[in-house]
Amino acid sequence: MCDTCGCNITDGNRHLLTPPKGQTNFGNTPAKILNNLLLHNDQQADTNRARFDSKCVLTINLMSSPGSGKTALLEATIRKLNGSLRIAVIEGDLETENDADRIRALGVPAHQITTGTACHLDAHLVEKALDHLNLDELDVLFIENVGNLVCPASFDLGHHRNVALLSVTEGDDKPAKYPVMFRAADLMLISKTDILPYLPEFSPDRAEGCLRNLASKAPALRLSSKSGEGLEAWIAWLHSELKSYRKARQQHETVKPNVQPEGRMLHRAEPEIRFVAVKKSA
């Protein structure tokens, strides 16, 4: 989808497409530089991660379809934690400050990234957002990605863990339909379980089965941000991840999310070469 909608290019990396000063022949320059976008993204992601690591801030990337309850989960998490962890949120949406406003209303720092047309966050957009947050005062940073089950899976933001939400209104075969996304998940959350009684067609067991069929060992937790059911297990996961992250930091190590390589970097194996002889032109 991205080459047709132009979503490779975000406000965060647009500068990479600008020709060097004084260069008048625009010609192939953008194409040439575009080539490196993903490489640049990965480099920026490493820089971001080093920044999180220097302040020991566990950073979690929340991904899902639009409307599966990412912001509601964050609201419920903030209430449940009740100040026991210092957290902040980066919100990604195409437009509006609505989600960041919801987080701020609970007294938690939030910065909204509006991506315009881009359907995912990238490492450059996150870097810009970091200027608006004080990492010194944080234990955990949540990045709520743009609601989309395709592109966000491929862009490393420099975060440490991927959490994928699947709400019970969506169909329990989502992991089978979007294997690249769900294979990237370090944790799958089945959300909105309070309305399960009205949705007999959704089976949490089947959803988890679809995840297991992707050879994923990621835990699958069930919760409702509205009723609070299942929140304890999610909070426990969070604490346990924070504990192992801090342990890793004591060893000067970091943790990386289950980001799939997606063959984004062309394998450097030597291709087979075939020669076709053609008559010399006159």
């Binding site: 063959g263 062309l266 394998h267 087979e272 020669f275």
Partner: peptide, 9 residues
Amino acid sequence: LILARVELE
């Protein structure tokens, strides 16, 4: 994603 073969004239 592999570049498997290239035919050159």
